[in-house]
């Protein structure tokens, strides 16, 4: 929280933004990167037609030119369109996995951490058990079984099944350390019951950890989905980043030197993960004042 005590009320909010950026450069950079990707997905469609992702839209194997800024692939799809329309799909998977992972993680973590006892044994036991499961293997089995009707949403749900364990453990351990804090004890003497204490006293102090868990779950979700797709187990007809990589391998784009096919998706993936990593590291600084840059 704020390190310097001040007697005056805080200055105008506008002035706070540049100072916040200076105080948390990693967080700011990470958010900027992700924001750029999101902007691209939002603004892009105004400049590039969606038809570009369909097979046979243009002549195949064309190098990047003024007409097709990122060239075309072997089945005549425009790479720029694929990037612009495919990236949000990947982000969507991440968001769903993140939201579900966080939601379950929060409930399990808070309940098992605060109430302990049998709840702790059951919920933590479940998280630990699931953690030992070889994730990708399970996902592959599920994906192959569902192969026929897999959509982006279905894939997101499948991937979420393995995104809740770390949030549960992280949140639980934080709650354990906060449970005996003075203000929690005091809350009980002010007439609050367990639920109120969790919501009013614990959650506000957990925000950085909740955010970090969310980012972690998003990363895990995206990574898992790209992994599945690169193996060819994703939604066949959607231009997601992972599927694009799969098709580029299927059509041996590397050997044929069609770099504009496999390089762009990789660059986008790198940007996304770098952004997520920086956000996560930045949140670490927020949660742990000692890591902050001295201004």
């Amino acid at each position: 929280m704020v390190a310097v005590a001040s007697r005056r009320p805080s200055r105008a909010s506008i002035g706070r933004v540049p100072r916040a950026i200076r105080a948390y450069p990693m967080l700011a950079t990470g958010l900027a990167l992700i924001l750029a990707i999101v902007l691209m997905s939002v603004i892009g469609p105004y400049f590039v037609e969606r038809d570009g992702v369909n097979v046979g839209y243009a002549l195949p194997d064309q190098r990047p030119s003024r007409e097709y800024l990122l060239g075309t692939d072997t089945v005549g799809r425009q790479m720029l369109a694929i990037i612009i329309y495919g990236t949000p799909l990947t982000l969507k998977v991440g968001l769903i996995a993140g939201a579900i992972g966080l939601a379950i993680g929060m409930v399990f973590g808070l309940v098992s951490g605060y109430y302990g006892g049998i709840w702790d044994h059951v919920l933590r036991g479940a998280a630990d058990a699931f953690l030992t499961v070889p994730g990708l293997l399970v996902l592959v089995v599920i994906a192959t079984t569902l192969r026929g009707g897999i959509s982006v949403t279905t894939q997101a749900l499948v991937v979420s099944a393995l995104a809740w364990m770390y949030p549960t453990r992280t949140i639980r351990s934080q709650v354990l350390s906060m449970r005996e804090r003075g203000y929690v004890r005091l809350g009980r003497f002010s007439g609050m019951n367990g639920f109120e204490i969790i919501v009013k006293e614990l959650i506000p102090n957990l925000l950085p950890y909740l955010a970090a868990s969310f980012v972690g779950a998003v990363s895990a979700g995206i990574l898992a989905s790209i992994g599945l797709e690169a193996l060819g187990l994703g939604p066949q007809n959607e231009p997601t980043l992972g599927m694009t990589i799969y098709w580029s391998m299927y059509y041996t784009s590397m050997l044929r030197n069609l770099w504009w096919w496999w390089v762009p998706p990789i660059i986008i993936i790198v940007i996304i993960f770098t952004g997520l990593f920086l956000i996560s590291a930045g949140l670490d600084q927020v949660a742990n004042p000692r890591l902050r840059r001295q201004t």
Binding site: M1, R181, G182, Y183, R185, L186, G187, F189, S190, G191, M192, K200, E201, P204, N205
Partner: peptide, 16 residues
């Protein structure tokens, strides 16, 4: 320790 750093001190008075 007895104050939740998230809230102003009014919180410990208004809650009860």
């Amino acid at each position: 320790e007895v104050y939740n750093p998230f809230y102003r001190i009014d919180h410990v008075l208004t809650t009860p």
